[in-house]
């Protein structure tokens, strides 16, 4: 564990907590894409298949349980909770996430570290995580005024993977056999997808104006 990875995990945890705070306290999921939340639940479900077989550390297991539990409960809230679901913008959240899942699955069948079920699922979860934010970014561009919690959620979600990139650079130089091209490329693509959001988010913070993405 290094400071970059810890910062990344804590930022990722904060993004989940901000979203749960928004949904649980004000009972609203306005501006949040259910498609992205479903994709994240799938990412964690396919990434953490080894949660009960390979024990890494207490920290690792606890964090996996938190990410699995929070992502599925957010999907449940947005689909089932009578108050929260009313604030879900079904008409605007129309990104067909099937067209993200299928290419990632096909790519994982071709590009993986080993052609085993777990390794293919692991590669799939990395490719899917890289693009899972797209429905959310599309929804943000359609949603005129983005509320602060939603903006903070997306910002933290993008920042966590940026910290991971520093973690991969650090581990590459400090651990001899540490090479994971699939993780590195997926993580880089994922972070680049946030580039324009970061630009507008930073400007809205600098000029102290409401976050507004150009259509």
């Amino acid at each position: 564990m290094n400071i970059f990875r810890l910062a990344g995990d804590m930022t990722h945890l904060m993004s989940v907590l901000v979203l749960l705070l928004k949904i649980h306290t004000i009972k609203s999921c306005a501006g949040i894409s259910l498609k992205t939340q479903e994709l994240y639940a799938l990412v964690f479900a396919t990434r953490y298949l080894d949660i009960f077989t390979d024990f890494i550390s207490v920290y690792n297991t606890i964090m996996k349980l938190i990410f699995l539990g929070s992502s599925f409960s957010i999907v449940w809230y947005m689909r089932r909770h009578k108050l929260v679901r009313r604030s879900y913008d079904k008409e605007q959240d129309t990104f067909r996430h099937f067209f993200l899942v299928l290419p990632c699955l096909l790519l994982a069948l071709v590009m993986n570290e080993k052609f085993t079920f777990k390794e293919v699922m692991w590669a799939f979860s990395l490719y899917l995580e890289a693009v899972a934010i797209l429905p959310q970014l599309v929804l943000l561009q359609r949603t005129k005024n983005i509320d602060n919690l939603t903006g903070q959620y997306v910002f933290l979600l993008g920042a966590y993977r940026a910290f991971y990139i520093f973690n991969w650079i650090y581990r590459y130089f400090t651990e001899p056999h540490y090479v994971h091209w699939i993780t590195w490329i997926s993580g880089l693509v994922q972070t680049l997808l946030y580039a324009d959001f970061f630009y507008y988010y930073f400007n809205s913070w600098k000029n102290n104006v409401k976050l507004h993405l150009p259509a």
């Binding site: 390979d54 890494i56 996996k64």
Partner: peptide
């Protein structure tokens, strides 16, 4: 730390 190929990251 874990052997190289074990996925020790979240």
């Amino acid at each position: 730390s874990a052997t190289p190929d074990v996925k020790d990251e979240l």
